[in-house]
Design a protein around this nucleic acid. Structure first.
Lengths: 219, 219
DNA sequence: CTATATTATGACTACATAGTCACATAACTA
DNA sequence: TAGTTATGTGACTATGTAGTCATAATATAG
């Protein structure tokens, strides 16, 4: 965790440092993210940086934590339905809200994505921060979905969770590619305006494929 | 492309260099793959390396080309069925053969994967080498599948291709995680023995989900 | 054996990185 | 105001990288 000195900083300055660091870790993986670039952009001395953070890893884990918390807060504030009301409606909401977050908070989204799928010399520690929005969470959902009878009992729960999680995580990229934008562009140029109707159609179709595929009574 | 000098090399030496380089580019992304490490491992001088390859990019593109060609050759020699006989049987074969390649040639597989999904300062050029085994190929398959009536006409072809391609590319990781192995381990420790029956079951189930999901007459 | 073309070499350049530390400045306290 | 603590600083170290180049060794010719 950052030092007390960091938290004593004027909020304005703290915000600026975090914002610049988020951009750096969104645009580069851990090995290539550069502290030197961050301090240059933030116009603070190298020595100051190391009064705020133990080291590069400390900063990175802090950013991952921040980004994950922001994503969770975003999802929670996005009118989640009750899972008991049906697994696939809930999944429909989760995919939609997740993709909306990815598109409206591209830098934060990238940071989380890299923490989960990128190469880190401290995977385990990073995964602690992202548990609530990663595969483990989807696995819980699927078990509940099977228990409720929304998913066929002959479907392998782990496989179903893998399929759902994978598609959910990559769907944002598909939507982007549809509009001819690369994730990198988005991360650099910031949020874009969304053609909501087209997006909603895509989510509906993915859910339809999954529901038909995993619930034989639903055709 | 490598220089004539490289191709004049004794095959033994050439093979060794390629093998070491493949391992390096399998275990590290482009930015972190190290020419210094390669020449150290191969016990050749830095200067010699630069008599074989223009630069790092030249080597990388050559490796991607080699790996892609090997994968294509592997697939072709694996008894592909006719697409006309049915889209999903063909897809079933493609996923199975692809995953078998990933598991028996983990280093080559990683090189291809990184070329497609990793960060490269020359994406376009790399994608030239991988066209035949990437999304574009799946898109062609899907169009054929729709034309044949194997996929519902109301399914968005690009979305279907995205879903199929994404799952196909990630399925190897799922199978590995089932066995408690990380892709990194596999790439470093080489091919493992496979529980074929369990793998086949997983492929069957994925195909079942996709077929039910994309062909409403199939339930 | 000599002359020419090919290949091998590793010290070297130029650059970038993470992290440190002795010192300077500012802020608070008594 | 004097003394103490917290914060800011940037030159510096140690390490790594891709790529170069003058020189040496080797092979192939005539």
């Amino acid at each position: 965790m950052p030092t007390q000195t960091f938290f004593n900083l004027p909020e304005e300055k703290r915000r600026m440092i975090v914002e610049i660091a988020i951009a750096e870790f969104a645009n580069h993986d851990y090995a290539n993210a550069s502290i030197s670039r961050i301090v240059a952009q933030a116009k603070i001395a190298k020595g100051s940086f190391y009064q705020y953070f133990q080291d590069k890893k400390d900063l990175c884990l802090y950013l991952v934590k921040l980004a994950s918390e922001e994503k969770i807060a975003f999802l929670r504030s996005n009118n989640p339905p009750e899972l008991q009301q049906g697994f696939f409606p809930y999944l429909r909401w989760l995919m939609g809200a997740g993709a909306r977050f990815d598109l409206t908070h591209p830098a934060l989204s990238q940071v989380v994505y890299r923490a989960i799928y990128g190469e880190l010399p401290f995977r385990e520690e990073a995964h602690q921060q992202t548990k609530e929005i990663s595969l483990e969470y989807v696995q819980q959902l699927v078990e509940q979905g099977i228990a409720q009878g929304d998913i066929d009992t002959d479907v392998d729960p782990d496989l179903a969770a893998f399929v759902i999680n994978t598609l959910g995580n990559e769907l944002g990229k598909f939507i982007l590619s549809r509009r001819g934008i690369s994730p990198k562009q988005l991360a650099q140029e910031g949020p874009i305006d969304l053609d909501m109707q087209r997006m909603e159609n895509i989510f509906d179709e993915v859910i339809q494929i999954l529901e038909r595929g995993m619930n034989s009574s639903k055709n």
